[in-house]
Design a protein around this nucleic acid. Structure first.
Length: 346
DNA sequence: TCTGGGGTCCTAGGACCC
DNA sequence: TCTGGGGTCCTAGGACCC
């Protein structure tokens, strides 16, 4: 077998639930739901994850906790605890870096690995064993010629398995599937493609790029066809990601109608975001204020700052000025502040 | 099932300038 | 004067992902 380059995608199985069960072994085998502050009576809080036992009751991530409670009154509800997920994630990534691979971290529970080997399955099995031995966490590993293939392959590998999806096997594996099986095509685009007669991956792969560009945009249209052909980024980037921006938002359990209360909360968010930027050593070049009203209508207003800054007072004043441009005649369920960072010159 | 929070990137239209 | 066309920046919204 010839030695060549591979992309591996490692996906930790049921990551948040697995971390929680390590801390609460007595809950193993019980339906467990993690989300919010762990209070299932709190409105407008959703599940971050649910164990297999909870899923048997029809509970899934994204479901309101109140609904989950109704479906399974015996379920155990735990608060979300991002710092411990962060810590568990860091332990896993450290294990991966001990192998002769390039590691690109992709969120808490995923990583792409670049490897040169004649036996990627053996490497994947070694990785799984090491991660399990050192962290007690299971992972699935996809093997491909690029990130797109490897990413889809790791989903086929679940739970705790290994799956290879390459350019050679792409058509046989993917052609009959709906277009939203591709990584980057969701329900909206899939429906729009179907309206143009493109239902399957094979049909999208055979579509006219110019036609796609006309209906889906000059970049996106041809890119969808590229995905359907099984192509994708094949370079693993190990340098740390430089964030484009940052945001904080709050959904209130009960609507806000008092303009003063809205302004007060907005000012708090703006100051937090300004401090976050300063902590990250970044300057802010644009401020966006997001308001979601009942019934679930989301509006944004933004301003480019004349001069980049991290000054909390400037960010707060800008956010409050932007708030004045919003229509606040409807009850407010969400307030958010997002900022765009100045990108360092390269 | 009345619908979180934090991100990234693309698109389209209008303003403005030459 | 009553009408062009391109380039760039800004803004709002939307789609997707974890």
């Amino acid at each position: 077998m010839a030695t060549r380059n591979w992309i591996l995608h490692l996906d930790l199985d049921q990551f948040i639930a697995a971390v929680e069960l390590l801390r609460h072994p007595e809950l193993r085998g019980r339906p467990v739901v993690v989300g919010g502050t762990g209070d299932p009576t709190q409105p407008r809080t959703v599940a971050a994850t649910a164990t297999y036992e909870a899923r048997e009751h029809g509970i899934h991530s994204g479901m309101p906790l109140r609904t989950a409670l109704r479906r399974c009154p015996d379920a155990v509800f735990l608060p979300s605890d991002p710092p411990s997920y962060e810590a568990a994630s860091a332990r896993v990534m450290a294990v991966l870096r001990e192998f002769p691979v390039h590691v690109e971290v992709w969120g808490w529970d995923e990583a792409f690995l670049g490897a040169t080997t004649d036996d990627p399955e053996a490497l994947a099995a070694d990785l799984q064993h090491a991660v399990r031995a050192r962290t007690h966490l299971d992972c699935s590993i996809g093997i491909g010629d690029n990130k797109h293939q490897a990413k889809l392959a790791s989903a086929f590998a679940k739970p705790a398995g290994i799956y290879r999806l390459t350019t050679e096997t792409w058509a046989a594996t993917m052609n009959h599937r709906p277009t939203d099986a591709l990584w980057g095509i969701g329900t909206k685009i899939s429906a729009k493609l179907a309206a143009h007669g493109l239902h399957t991956v094979a049909q999208l792969a055979a579509a006219d790029p110019a036609d796609l560009a006309r209906h889906f945009g000059p970049t996106n249209g041809p890119w969808y066809r590229y995905l359907a052909l099984g192509k994708g980024e094949a370079e693993v980037v190990t340098t740390p990601w430089i964030a484009r921006g940052h945001s904080r938002e709050t959904t209130f359990p009960h609507d806000l109608t008092d303009p003063a209360a809205i302004a007060t909360h907005l000012a708090t968010l703006a100051q937090q975001v300004a401090h976050d930027a300063a902590d990250a050593g970044r300057t802010i070049t644009r401020v966006t204020v997001k308001i979601r009203t009942t019934p679930f209508q989301t509006r944004t207003r933004q301003t480019k700052l004349p001069t980049p800054t991290t000054d909390p007072a400037t960010i707060t004043r800008t956010a409050l000025d932007i708030l004045d441009r919003h229509d606040l005649t409807h009850p407010v369920r969400l307030i958010g502040v997002a900022v765009e960072y100045t990108m360092p010159k390269t």
